[in-house]
Structures are given as C-alpha cells and as structure tokens.
C-alpha cells in the first residue's frame, strides 16, 4: 500500500516538475537531472515503504496503546487508555484496493494522535470496537 501511494506521489511530483520545467524552460534539462529524479522516486517508492514497514509496530494493552512509526525520523507514541478521546477508522482509496484500513487514536492533545496504518479491515474493525469499549470504561472527560 505504502509502495503504491509513494509511487503515485513520486510520479506526480516528477510529472509536475517536468511540466513546470517544460513551461518554464529556464533550465535546460540534462540527462543526469532526469536520472537523479527517477532514482529519487525509485528509492522513495521502493526502499522507503519497506523501511516504514519494518519500523511500524503497534501494541494494545489493558491500559495503553503504543505505536512506532516513521522511517528516517522514528516516532514512538504511548497513550493511556484513560485519555483516549476518539477512535477513527479510515479506508483510503488505495488502501481499499488491498482490503486495508487505518485506525487513528486521538487524545485531547493536538500532539498526541496515534496512527496504526495498513491493518486488515476485519482486524481494524475489531481493534476499533475493542478500543472504544476500553476507553468507554474509564470515567472522566479524559483531559
């Protein structure tokens, strides 16, 4: 999924750049520039998603949710179950092709959303139900 979306993103970027260059015509396009661009996209579409996949972990316990995401900059986030505000379930167009979904857990802080990407849809729905039930069991307004 990431591979495809990165590929799409990268291709669009290159296309826009090429179009911009064609219109602008200020810089004469050398072959190595094109090569560099294509190599960049290849890395972006080939290596980065693998890397991302290797890094991405998640875990849900009785009291907290824990995720690890990123590739170059790695981010590990922990949110106590008692502080969960909402649990979102989203399927992007590309994710739906693969039957996948993304679960986002938000807390009252703008800096604290946890994202678990690329889950099997069935699994994701079960996770949403489970998190909702667990978060619901806690008193207070979770701030």
């Amino acid at each position: 999924m990431w591979q495809l979306s990165n590929l799409v993103e990268g291709t669009i970027t290159v296309a826009v750049l090429a179009a911009g260059l064609a219109v602008w015509d200020a810089i004469d396009l050398r072959w190595w520039m094109v090569g560099l661009g294509i190599a960049g996209v290849a890395v972006y579409a080939g290596v980065v998603p693998q890397w991302r996949y290797v890094v991405h972990r998640w875990e849900v316990s009785e009291t907290a949710v824990y995720t690890q995401t990123g590739w170059w900059a790695r981010e590990r986030r922990i949110a106590p179950m008692s502080r969960i505000q909402t649990v979102d379930y989203a399927e992007t167009a590309i994710a739906r092709l693969f039957g996948l979904a993304t679960v986002t857990v938000t807390t009252a802080s703008a800096a604290g959303a946890l994202q678990i990407a690329g889950l099997d849809q069935e699994r994701a729905r079960r996770l949403v139900d489970e998190l909702t039930l667990k978060a619901d069991a806690v008193e207070g307004d979770a701030t």
Binding site: E59, S61, L119
Partner: peptide
Amino acid sequence: DGRVVGGDEGAR
C-alpha cells in the same frame, strides 16, 4: 496473555 499484540498486516 490478555493483550492484543499485532504486527501490521499491511500488504507490500
């Protein structure tokens, strides 16, 4: 053991 532990099941 009571926890839910999962790897990401994303397709590559």
